[in-house]
């Protein structure tokens, strides 16, 4: 029961984006399309899962004073692995995420889970926690990416929702997507409304 809770709490109840509001930089920067958001989410999930596992194993051998630098080294190692693997196998995704892959190191969620959970819980629970938080993060990023892509480009995961020449011309709205949602201001505005809706639904 409690194991299942460790896994599922990150998805809704303690969702890292909508509830804890951590890791804003990649959330805003990489969600210009659903596929980018999902790619970033999955990369972060891998780092979270691996770093939580390793840190929960080695936490008791690390002196308290140097624990943060030690955690950062562990996290940076896994980020480097992700960076190299993505460069080799998913070239186009790697290029569109750009600088934000190495920046997973400073994503507050990863260090936050290490400090708040992995260093005082067992390996199995820490793995579940990392996986759950990662999936919650991925879900939030994919959702935000989809919303922005629908509003800004009339497509999801690159699939056009309406034909290029719309037969039903209900005003200008359906001709021109709201490009601003793909650009920087749209990220802030879309996320603001999504958090507001999430707060409302949670009550």
């Amino acid at each position: 029961m409690s194991h299942i809770y460790q896994l599922t709490k990150g998805i809704i109840k303690e969702n890292p984006i909508f509830v804890i509001v951590l890791g804003m930089c990649p959330t805003l920067a990489t969600t210009s399309s659903a596929i980018n958001g999902m790619g970033m989410g999955l990369a972060t999930t891998f780092v979270l899962l691996s770093s939580n596992t390793v840190i929960s194993l080695i936490a008791r051998f690390i002196p308290d004073k140097v624990r943060i630098p030690s955690y950062i080294v562990v996290i940076a190692t896994f980020v480097t692995i992700v960076d190299l693997v993505m460069q080799a196998y998913t070239q186009s995704l790697y290029e569109s995420l750009g600088i934000f892959i190495p920046l997973i190191v400073v994503n507050c969620i990863v260090l936050g889970r290490a400090e708040a959970f992995a260093n005082k819980n067992g390996v199995f629970d820490s793995m579940l926690d990392g996986l759950g938080m990662g999936l919650g993060f991925t879900l939030a990023l994919t959702l935000l990416g989809s919303v922005r892509e629908i509003l800004g480009n009339f497509s999801v995961f690159g699939l056009k929702l309406i034909p290029k020449e719309p037969v039903w011309t209900a005003g200008q709205f359906f001709h021109d997507p709201m490009l601003v949602f793909i650009l920087a201001p749209g990220a802030f505005i879309a996320l603001a409304y999504m958090i507001a809706i999430f707060n409302k639904l949670k009550k």
Binding site: V21, P185, A187, F188, I189, L191, Y193, I195, A196, K200
Partner: peptide, 18 residues
Amino acid sequence: KGMKGVPISLLTAGILAL
């Protein structure tokens, strides 16, 4: 009420970005 805290800050940031 629903916009208090983080959402209104993000919205402000969005308008600033604009």
